[in-house]
Structure formats: C-alpha cells, structure tokens
Design a protein around this nucleic acid. Structure first.
Lengths: 203, 203
DNA sequence: ACCGATTTGTTTGTATACAATAATGCATAC
DNA sequence: GTATGCATTATTGTATACAAACAAATCGGT
C-alpha cells in the first residue's frame, strides 16, 4: 500500500466530498509525514526509507523519554487506573482481534503522552506513533507478533512504584524492541526499493 | 500583534492571491501553533498562555538536547566551520541591526538541528523555535537584550572539544536562560490577559 | 519494428461562486 | 439608558470552473 497514488478526484468521489476537502486533509497528512507530495504530481502514501525510519524512531525515543520523566513526577491515581485499564483492553484484544490490538498498542503511547499534560509533546508523540505504524506496515513481516503488552505493563509498574529511572529504562527497552522488529527484519532497504521498482513494471 | 484577527480576504488582497492560498497557509500555521483557529470563526495570531509557553520550552529543551547529543558524535570540520561563521554573523548583526540579530539567533538553533542530519528532529526544532519567537514577542519586555551570543559560542566550543556532556549542559543553560527571560518577566499571565481584554475596549 | 513528435486525456493548482454561519448595527420596548 | 429582536453585512466553509502541468496514446518517418 505505501507508494500508492492518492488521486484527489478518486478520494473525493469515494467519500462524497469535493477536492477542496481532500486537498486540505492530504496537506495535513503530508505535514505529518504520512503521505509524500510532489509539486504538480500529487500525493502518494509515504514510503519512508530506512534512514527516515531511523530518524522517526530516534525522535520518538527522545520524546517518549520526556513523557515518562514528566509522568514519573506527577501521575495521579486516576492516571494509573486508566493506564491499567488500557493495558487490560490490549490483552483482551490481543486474543481475538488482531487489528484492534495493533491500534490499541499505538494508543497506549498516545494516552501516556496526553496524561503528561504537555500538549506540544502529546502532538509530536501522536505524529511519531502514526509514522511508526506506517513504518511497521512497510518493513516488519506480517506475522511478527507485537507481543509488547508485557513491556507496556512493565512501564506502568515502574511508574506506579514511583521509580522514574526504571520507567524510562522500560520505555527505552520497549521502543528499541519495536524499532528492532521493524528495522532489522530487512537487512537493507535496497531489496525493498528494488521490489517497488519491479512492481511498477509488473502489471 | 498576537490575538489579531487574520481575515482571509484582507490577507489575500494584501498579497494578490485568492482565499484558497491564504486558507492553506493559515492551516499550516495553525498546525505549527503560530495561529489559533476556531470553526466558523477564522484565524487569529496565536496567543499562547503561560502554560502553553512552558510546554513549548520544555519540549524544545528535550529536542535540542537530542540534537546536541547527536552532533557530539558526528560533527564534521565543515559543520563546525559553518556554525562558527554563523555565530560571527550574529555578533556583527547584534551591533547594528537588532531585527536581524533576533532572526539569526533563532536560525542558529535551526542550523544545529539540520546539521544533526535527522529530518524529523529538524522539523520539530524548527517549529518550537518559531513558537518560542512568538512567545518572546508576547511575554518578554521589548528591550531585554538577547545577549545570548556568548551562550551560542559556548555550545559550539564544547562541541569542538568533543565534550558532549558539556555541550548538552551549555544548551540546557542557554535554553533555561531564554525561557526565563520570556516567562519570568511576567509573574502571572492574568495581568497580561487582562491587558488584552482592556486593549480590545481601548480604541 | 522503433523512435520522436503531436495530440488527447488526466490530474493538479488557483480562482471564483454560492450557501451557511457568525458579527454588526438599528430600531423598538422597557 | 439599557437591553432585546430583527435585518443587514461580513466572513467562513464547500463546491465548482478553468488554466497549467503532466501522462499517455496515436501517428508518421525512418
């Protein structure tokens, strides 16, 4: 799916709106790095290179460390409760609904960021999480089970015990694991880039 | 100026373009936090509250620390040279052209971020630097001399000596100083919010 | 049969038109 | 004099129209 053309008319017809609307949302998605755009040539679903993917994960780690550092100082009992509830949702979904599980895994990080109370941080985390999802869709093999729920649990456990450093370490460990699953599953992106070129001449 | 209405028609006329163009750039500025928008009520120049300002500076510190950490490991001689050249531009401008000095001070941070080689990081730094400028325009008193050139010099000195931790400390110190100049110059924003309300009834 | 040029059809970029919503001003009532 | 309701104006949100750029296909020449 990444690399696919996003023709304004087609999308507009699909949703029953005019190109005006489609255009603004495409521009927003471009700003968020989810679609690529070239002048006079329109939009395509973004196809981040390996190095872009590394940039995203590095930035994400930097941002989420800050989220945890802030939370370690100010989490309330209510916050912990909603985090715990979320992880339980994840465990349930992980059994019978794979696509919901993937969504919830991302939303855990967004929830953390919003609980931090820093809107700017939260917006950036939201962006890098979305981009991470795209990267996973691109590079990680289909059935690499995202069994990261334990890691989520470890993070909130450390937070509950008020151990900021342990929480940061847990988050670091978790994000490194996610990045590894995505980026190390393909040694080099040449192979993937070539595939894309081949695909274009295949039909 | 913050709080001012940004009417699409008048901006379009001002620049000789249609509302379409104005609309897209307003949307972009909104995404960057430089203008506020309300549904059916249009755009105004953003008026970040003190707490939003704190969020921006906290996030900025987090991002720029990462920039420095990265640079400490990979700066080239060419990088150091262009950084040094930039600081010299700043010193020159500081003497005879105040407005250029302000612009260059911001661009120093953007240059650092771009030299880091991480595009995602660089975009976010660009954003928080712009927002910081807006915050300074809002909260810092007009003639608080931004004599931060020394601080810039200290950062690149530490980088040149390959002392990553010292560079991070220098950046931390610098950003804390900038934030203090902006945020501590007004004890509470009530006073400022009230002024804005009064100003509206003053003309 | 292959290459290049021209022509046709698509798709994007910008401007304009129209409907819906909000802001303003005025008249009237109290 | 102040407040309330209505009418007018301004401004926004969405759709459409048109021009420019691009992609593709057709045609003619070698």
């Amino acid at each position: 799916m990444p690399g696919d053309k996003l023709t304004e008319d087609v999308i507009g017809d699909r949703f029953g709106v005019s190109r005006t609307i489609v255009r603004t949302v495409l521009a927003r998605l471009y700003a968020e790095g989810l679609v690529d755009m070239q002048p006079n040539k329109g939009a395509t679903i973004a196809q981040p290179s390996l190095s872009e993917a590394q940039d995203v994960f590095e930035t994400r780690m930097c941002l989420e460390r800050q989220v945890i550092a802030r939370l370690a100082e100010k989490v309330t009992e209510d916050d912990m409760e909603s985090l715990q509830r979320h992880v339980e949702l994840e465990t349930k979904a992980n059994i019978h609904d794979g696509s919901a599980a993937i969504r919830l895994a991302g939303e855990f990080h967004i929830l953390l960021a919003s609980l931090s109370g820093n809107k700017v941080l939260a917006r950036y985390v939201d962006e890098v999480v979305s981009r991470s999802s795209l990267i996973l869709a691109l590079y990680s093999r289909p059935h690499s089970s995202d069994c990261s729920i334990n890691e989520h649990q470890q993070i909130i456990d450390a937070l509950r015990q008020g151990d900021g450093q342990a929480a940061i370490d847990a988050m670091d460990h978790h994000l490194k694991a996610v990045a590894d699953r995505a980026l190390l599953s393909s040694t080099s992106d040449k192979h993937r880039d070539i595939r894309s070129i081949l695909d274009r001449y295949a039909s």
